[in-house]
């Protein structure tokens, strides 16, 4: 899932400063799960903004709402408040939701309250870690299920660099060395031969280097086209 963290409050305040009536909009998907952008967080941020507004003597009114996903148009039908009646929508979705909502609500500025950080998994209560980079060319089959692109700080593909140290990465003592994990896992699986194989330079065109990415499922896309005709 997508993991995000809330922007510093001061940055949010600065963002909403030009507006008097703001709708804080939570998203019921990934960011709810990582406890940063669900309805409760929307409620709390709205509350904080009202408190801050009162403290500063601002004329600021804030409501909150939440929909199932901000990355699909249909869910906006379930909004309890009409965004058109607000000067701005402060979205607690990931960047996808913020960007998509900006298109759905052409007349209302949609502002990001979160920084979208990574694709991760919950590794402990309240802790999420990066597991995937969305590189477009999955290599997990030969790395024991541990992604060298996401979990090696340098996205190396032929093994650890000299910075590996007692299983940790040179970047931080709190960070596992991804290639150490891969080595251990492949060793366990009896598949160190995978580590010995030469991995040629990667094709990054499937990653961001190929420009904006798009997925079109022909079977669905065609049906949609027909029904539109």
């Amino acid at each position: 899932m997508i993991v995000a963290e809330r922007k510093p409050f001061d940055e949010i305040v600065e963002m909403v400063a030009p507006y008097k009536k703001v709708l804080v909009l939570g998203c019921g998907s990934c960011v709810t799960v990582c406890l940063t952008g669900g309805e409760r967080q929307a409620e709390i941020l709205a509350s904080q903004l009202r408190l801050a507004g009162r403290k500063k003597g601002l004329d600021l009114s804030v409501d909150f709402d939440c929909i199932t996903r901000q990355c699909d148009r249909e869910f906006t039908e379930n909004l309890k408040f009409d965004p058109a009646e607000y000067d701005a929508v402060l979205s607690l979705a990931c960047g996808v939701g913020v960007g998509f909502m900006s298109g759905v609500l052409p007349d209302t500025p949609v502002l990001p309250a979160l920084n979208t950080t990574f694709y991760g998994a919950g590794v402990a209560e309240g802790v999420w870690e990066e597991y995937c980079h969305g590189c477009g060319d999955c290599v997990l089959a030969w790395t024991g299920g541990i992604c060298p692109i996401a979990r090696c700080s340098k996205s190396l593909i032929n093994g650890a660099c000299g910075g590996t140290n007692d299983g940790k990465c040179e970047v931080s003592q709190d960070m596992d060395c991804g290639w150490h994990l891969i080595y251990k896992r492949l060793q366990e699986l009896g598949r160190l031969d995978e580590l010995r194989k030469m991995r040629p330079p990667r094709d990054w065109s499937k990653n961001r280097s190929g420009g904006v990415r798009r997925l079109s499922r022909e079977e669905m896309a065609e049906i949609a086209q027909e029904s539109a005709e």
Binding site: F9, I44, S47, Q48, L51, A52, K55, K56
Partner: peptide, 8 residues
């Protein structure tokens, strides 16, 4: 923490 962020 939330209160402090809001300037209280």
């Amino acid at each position: 923490r939330l209160l402090q962020e809001a300037g209280l």
